[in-house]
Amino acid sequence: MKHIFKIIAMLVAVSAIWIALLETATVPRSYTWLLPIYLVVALGCYGLFMVGFGLMFFPTCPQEAVLLQQDILEAKEFLSKKGVDVGSE
């Protein structure tokens, strides 16, 4: 199944529940009318939280840049001994 259909199916299911709530009026209708807004706000919060969380704990590796410079020097030394032209970029 194409992924878009999964998403559409989920939206349809959520809408069906919402309409059922509106029709049966098990909770006061004035509350039910606000539910979609809560849903959008909740999704937005989830997104912002995930991005913020990801940014706070973004894995960085400054030591790798140093190690790479060492590897580059080592490689250049070996290769120039073997006659490979690594003098210029």
Binding site: M50, V51, G54, L55, F58, P59, T60, C61, P62, E64, A65
Partner: peptide, 17 residues
């Protein structure tokens, strides 16, 4: 964990996330 990126500014990290 044990992975990571070096050399990205905040904007680059933000777009990536």
């Amino acid at each position: 964990q044990n992975g990571g990126v070096h050399g990205w500014n905040l904007m680059r990290k933000l777009t990536s996330r």
